[in-house]
Design a protein around this nucleic acid. Structure first.
Lengths: 211, 211
DNA sequence: ACCTGAACACCGTTCAAGT
DNA sequence: ACCTGAACACCGTTCAAGT
């Protein structure tokens, strides 16, 4: 078996014909289905191909390794969440600190909990991958958006905007993961939705200077 | 190959002779070494046994599946951290809210960052396992310790101690993970050590009633 | 009581052959 | 341009044979 060289996690080639695009879509869909119904340890390239109704060879035509398939899936999800964060941050420019904090927390939480099953599946998947670079890029995007947002607050200034944006991002992502990762009861989710806004508001107020 | 039944993650049998104890220790040590030097995807029972200087058969005498080995490793680490939290919480009973918050954050962070490489390795490992039950037990222990600590504060009372303990625990574990999981620079770690106490203090103050 | 290592079923990945 | 599936090296796990 070829050992992973750490690169080549991107798709091998783009589908050019309609037939090929159908194949790729079917593979994505099958991957999520197998992941949710059978679990990570049963996630086999053979099984994915079988469920997608194509041969293993076809799968490897588009994803050079099993990891590339999982990587593409994770990337899609992280970028969707980053887009949501970015949109919120743009929309809330110039608001009061409290309002932008609440909107950010709610927006992030909504994006992550829109499809909890998939989110959980992707938490599992991430460990099998070399995600340092991808997570770094996503973190940078979110950091920049949050930093700009904070600096635009109409009723406060920040001495160390980078440290605050860093902490806010790690806290949002981390606390959400800690709750969703294992079987979160509806009560756990409610608690998160109630407490996380309070947590972030209190921190931002403590870490800023009122105008 | 036998499919995992979801049970039987505990060690198959205890070593009874000194020779056997040496074998088990060597297996543990070898597992961490392989994990750190070769990565998760190269973590093979054959390779672990080889590095430990025993045969695969011996490994399977003590760990019925590869997962059981990883499970034991994770359990050891989580219990060490829970012990640290428990100790701090006992020592800080009756203190002021600010003091106990600072001590708790510092104690948790110290326990998690004592051996960052191992902590990171175990973050990877966790996804290959069915950790729901273990994480639940650890979470319960930490929750109870933190809840008791909060209620003992000499200068504050809490209306919803469970919600606050829940959030504090998820935030500590989550934010720390978010920072350590990928290549954390020394600067990231410093930022975490500076900001996390401020975050937790601000939240606890906002969520309690002064006396 | 403990250890060994060949043997088996299964998995990731490739590639010659097809349309 | 895309698809197929037999073939290969490797992995998890077992078990008969040893001390």
């Amino acid at each position: 078996m070829k050992r992973c060289s750490g690169e080549a996690l991107t798709a091998r080639k783009q589908p050019r014909q309609a037939r090929a695009r159908l194949t790729v879509d079917a593979i994505f869909e099958a991957t999520i289905q197998v992941l949710l119904s059978e679990g990570l340890s049963a996630l086999t390239t053979t099984r994915v191909a079988e469920r997608a109704g194509v041969s293993v060879g076809s799968l490897y035509q588009y994803f050079p390794q099993k990891q590339a398939l999982l990587f593409a899936l994770l990337q899609r999800h992280l970028e969707a969440v980053a887009d949501a964060v970015s949109t919120i941050c743009t929309r809330c420019l110039g608001m009061s600190l409290g309002d932008m904090s609440d909107a950010l927390v709610k927006g992030f939480l909504d994006a992550k909990t829109q499809d909890i099953a998939t989110t959980r599946a992707l938490y599992m998947v991430a460990a099998e991958l070399d995600t340092d670079e991808l997570l770094g890029i996503i973190a940078q995007r979110n950091h920049a958006a949050i930093r700009t947002l904070l600096l635009s607050a109409k009723d406060a200034t920040f001495d160390r905007p980078d440290a605050v944006a860093f902490t806010l991002r790690a806290t949002l992502a981390g606390a959400t993961r800690a709750v969703l990762e294992r079987g979160a009861t509806p009560g756990d989710l409610t608690a998160l939705q109630q407490e996380l806004p309070l947590l972030c508001r209190a921190y931002l107020v403590a870490r800023s200077n009122p105008l």
